[in-house]
């Protein structure tokens, strides 16, 4: 039992070798020091050293569709699940550890997040930035890949009956892609909903307290639900669309992306591994 527990936090010899190779590639690709948003490759590497064993042995992450990722900047666009942003952390880890060449995604975080002591600077050192148009545009122009969850807090903070149902995407991310002609990389994360399988959000109380979410859950420590990350084919911005295009034209494209991700989720559910708390797909 103890061996099993310590095994979660340690890497095997082959994993250690892989990690070392990735570290070298990261240091070659990113300048040492800090960037204006606070990314510090050395500190990010140290965090990754702690996260990777959990990614590998606790959440047992599998990545599908790696062949769709080229060495160029993308707007990495995913569904958002799991009550807290563990899915974002796993997706970031996947793009460093399981996709070559490794790249540090720049997750766009909610405004309240950047005011959180300890967590905000730690996340910034790992690459996260405030979800603001100026930030996204500047990062894309600098050739970095930005990670967005266009469902926002509404997507992540769902009650159990709504699991794997996507909330409508906002348009902002698409306008930023249109402005910079950045391709969208659709992602579906399957398995993160079951980190907290039985959750209820009392919306009235949450609104009265002015909180972004108020999850009442049977567990407050994430369960080891196996996670699959499905990467779809990149979606180009059609000719003639720019950041000032009418909402109607933007919505049309956003719906298409939603549909692509929805299809990836549905396919992913069919392929997922059994877990006792699965709300969709096989149970152990």
């Amino acid at each position: 039992m103890l061996d099993k527990l310590t095994g979660i936090f340690t890497l095997s010899e082959s994993e250690k070798k892989k990690f070392k190779k990735i570290e070298e590639a990261l240091l070659e690709r990113y300048p040492v020091g800090e960037d204006p948003w606070g990314l510090n490759v050395n500190k990010a590497r140290n965090s990754l050293k702690k996260i990777y064993p959990i990614y590998k042995h606790y959440f047992k992450v599998r990545v599908f569709g790696k062949e769709n990722v080229q060495d160029r900047p993308y707007m990495v666009t995913s569904n958002h699940t799991g009550q807290i942003a563990i899915d974002g952390m796993l997706l970031s880890t996947a793009f460093v550890m399981d996709i070559f060449p490794p790249r540090i995604l720049r997750p766009m975080v909610e405004r309240f997040f950047t005011a959180l002591p300890f967590i905000a600077p730690w996340a910034a050192e790992g690459g996260s930035v405030l979800g603001d148009r100026t930030n996204a545009l500047n990062l894309l122009k600098k050739g970095q890949s930005v990670m967005v969850f266009p469902e926002g807090v509404k997507g992540i903070a769902k009650s159990t009956p709504d699991y794997y149902k996507m909330k409508p995407f906002t348009r902002g991310f698409y306008r930023m892609c249109a402005a910079t002609k950045t391709e969208i990389l659709p992602i579906a994360i399957v398995g993160a909903e079951e980190f907290f399988p039985y959750v209820y959000h009392p919306r009235i109380i949450q609104k009265a307290l002015g909180l972004p979410a108020l999850p009442l859950s049977l567990n407050y420590f994430p369960l080891p639900s196996p996670v699959d990350i499905h990467i779809g084919e990149p979606i180009k911005i059609p000719e003639g669309l720019d950041q000032d295009s009418p909402d109607k034209d933007i919505d049309e494209q956003v719906f298409k992306i939603e549909k692509v991700i929805k299809d990836l989720i549905d396919e992913g559910i069919k392929m997922r591994r059994p877990f006792f708390a699965n709300q969709k797909g096989p149970k152990k």
Binding site: R111, A115, V129, L130, T134
Partner: peptide
């Protein structure tokens, strides 16, 4: 402010 963008114009 916590919600300042980077590179304020």
């Amino acid at each position: 402010l916590h919600d300042n963008p980077v590179f304020i114009p």
